[in-house]
């Protein structure tokens, strides 16, 4: 009983800390949203609400970034599918192989995670030009699939290792070959891992700037991140349209995470922990 007032005070204190933190986390997004609806005359009054909703900012952003937004979709959707497929294809044998060979290959592929992409940037630029894929959407698919290999392999290998081995043994007794086992049994049983990886890859690919500025140069293939970076670093920044475009660029991945947050956490801990 004696601890009660103390406990109450503690609860109030924790709530206070949480609310303050929440304000700090959400304020930039709210200010950006308000700014995107303000006319140029109002924009300098950061904390006020817009008197009229100035949708022209969104029209202006669409003029400058609309095409690149659709490029982002055209790049991200297939590239995510390819990269998780490659990760599964590589992760499967590595999860089942015994002996030094498998270990060495796994280590080699994992070292890819520590490679800063600057070390491949210049040769990649010339390679992609040589392949005739410079400034094309398929070029971006190829690059994202290839550079996703280390993480996707790591993730899928660990996921497959957590799938009960009895399934594999039962399939073997039934006379099911290793390839058939992978396509018919293991992949369909792995949807939770695959979807968690899909969310992680969607974020990584949609948000990428470095590869995009290296191997795209025009509205042919340029994703929305490049448009925003160009817009944000121009000398006379118009913050209204910039914030409008920024908010639209945020929405797809944010929505995906909010919808699949549980799968993401489970996949991350199940795939890499334990």
């Amino acid at each position: 009983m004696m601890a009660d007032p103390l406990k109450r005070r503690q609860t109030i204190l924790t709530r206070l800390v949480l609310v303050c933190a929440a304000i700090v986390f959400i304020a930039p997004l709210i200010v950006a949203a308000l700014t995107s609806l303000k006319s140029p005359a109002e924009i300098t009054r950061v904390l006020s609400l817009p008197t009229d909703l100035w949708w022209q900012n969104y029209a202006a952003a669409f003029d400058r970034m609309g095409r690149s937004f659709f490029n982002s979709i055209a790049i991200t959707v297939p590239a995510v599918a390819f990269s998780i497929l490659i990760g599964a294809v590589a992760g499967y044998p590595l999860a089942y192989m015994r002996g030094a060979g498998g270990k060495a290959i796994y280590f080699l592929l994992l070292t890819g995670m520590l490679v800063p992409f600057q070390i491949v940037q210049i040769p990649l630029f010339f390679m992609i030009q040589g392949l005739g894929l410079y400034d094309t959407v398929p070029g971006m698919w190829l690059v994202h699939t290839a550079y996703g290999i280390p993480f996707c392999t790591f993730f899928m290998r660990n996921f497959f290792a957590s799938v009960p081995r009895s399934m594999y043994e039962a399939a073997q007794i039934e006379g099911c070959g290793p390839a058939r086992y992978f396509w018919k049994l293991l992949l369909p049983a792995s949807t939770s891992g695959l979807s968690a990886l899909a969310i992680i890859q969607t974020r990584a690919i949609w948000n990428d700037l470095l590869f995009a500025i290296t191997i795209t140069s025009s509205d042919n293939a340029r994703p929305v991140t490049v448009s925003i970076a160009g817009y944000a670093s121009s000398l006379q920044v118009e913050y209204g349209p910039l914030m409008a475009g920024t908010l639209v660029s945020i929405l797809p991945v944010m929505a995906a995470f909010l919808l699949f947050q549980k799968a993401f956490v489970r996949g991350l801990l199940g795939g890499a922990g334990k």
Binding site: T225, V226, A229, I250, V253
Partner: peptide, 12 residues
């Protein structure tokens, strides 16, 4: 905020 592209973080 973690879901936001780095360039959008920069812009904001």
């Amino acid at each position: 905020p973690f879901t936001i592209p780095a360039v959008s973080v920069g812009a904001i």
